[in-house]
Amino acid sequence: MFTGIIEDVGTIDKLEKDGGNLHITVQTSITNELKIDQSVAHNGVCLTVVDLKEDSYTVTAIQETLDKTNLGLLKEKEFINIERAMKLGDRLDGHIVQGHVDQIATCTTIKEENGSWVFTFEYDKSLNNITIEKGSITVNGVSLTVVNSQLNSFSVAIIPYTFSHTTFKTLKIGDTINLEFDVIGKYVKRLNDLRN
């Protein structure tokens, strides 16, 4: 369980294919606080730490994860959003995030607005995921509030702190991002679909 509040921006140190799996080695300032078997979200994807070195750690993404997220598009030396699992009893500063990416989306516009930024994303509506105005959404692991909710797109407003402390500072039009839709909204939609 995560909150969508990014702890660090790591750097992809090494990518190694192993059959259908991808071993991802990440350098980050929180490496010394990690342990083997720990869950860590990478651009919003929950992965298990399988190896630790002095200043880096390794996780493994299986083929299904690579097919449904943007992790298969990673390149060495790229940045990645990092969040450790939440601790019971801590404040829930973002929203309830499972680390289970629902689908990918494409960044279609980036608009600077006098000190903040508005990013717009388009996604495949045939997968039946929805956003609502002022609802929660997780973009590459970052907990955000939806603005301009449409049938297959939405926007988010990014404050300077979030821009500087996440991979939003490197995001470009055309980039593929991971989306995790609000878990409560997913259950409500599923129950409504079963009634109809």
Rank of each mutant, 00 (worst) to 15 (best):
M1R: 02
F2E: 02
F2N: 00
T3P: 11
T3V: 10
D8M: 05
V9A: 09
V9L: 06
V9I: 09
V9G: 08
G10S: 10
I12D: 06
D13I: 15
D13E: 15
K14Q: 09
K14I: 10
L15H: 05
K17F: 09
G19D: 11
G19L: 10
G20E: 04
G20I: 01
L22V: 14
L22H: 03
Q27L: 14
S29L: 15
I30G: 03
T31R: 08
T31E: 04
I36E: 12
I36F: 11
V40G: 00
V40A: 03
A41G: 07
N43P: 15
V45D: 09
D51H: 03
D55M: 09
S56M: 00
T58E: 14
T60I: 14
A61W: 10
A61M: 09
Q63W: 13
T65Q: 08
N70I: 02
G72T: 06
G72Q: 01
L73D: 08
K75D: 13
N81Q: 01
I82A: 02
I82H: 01
R84T: 14
L88S: 15
G89R: 05
D90A: 09
L92K: 06
V101M: 04
Q103L: 14
I104C: 14
T106F: 13
K111L: 15
E112D: 12
S116M: 05
F121S: 00
K125R: 08
N128E: 14
I132M: 12
E133C: 12
K134T: 05
N140G: 00
G141F: 12
G141R: 05
S143T: 13
T145C: 04
V147D: 11
N148T: 02
S149A: 13
Q150G: 08
L151T: 09
L151Y: 08
L151W: 13
F154Q: 08
S155N: 13
V156S: 01
A157M: 06
I158C: 11
I158M: 03
I159G: 14
P160S: 07
T162I: 07
T162S: 04
H165T: 12
T166Q: 11
T167Y: 07
K169P: 01
T170C: 03
K172C: 07
D175H: 02
N178A: 03
E180H: 10
D182P: 06
G185P: 01
V188N: 15
R190D: 12
L191Q: 07
N192D: 06
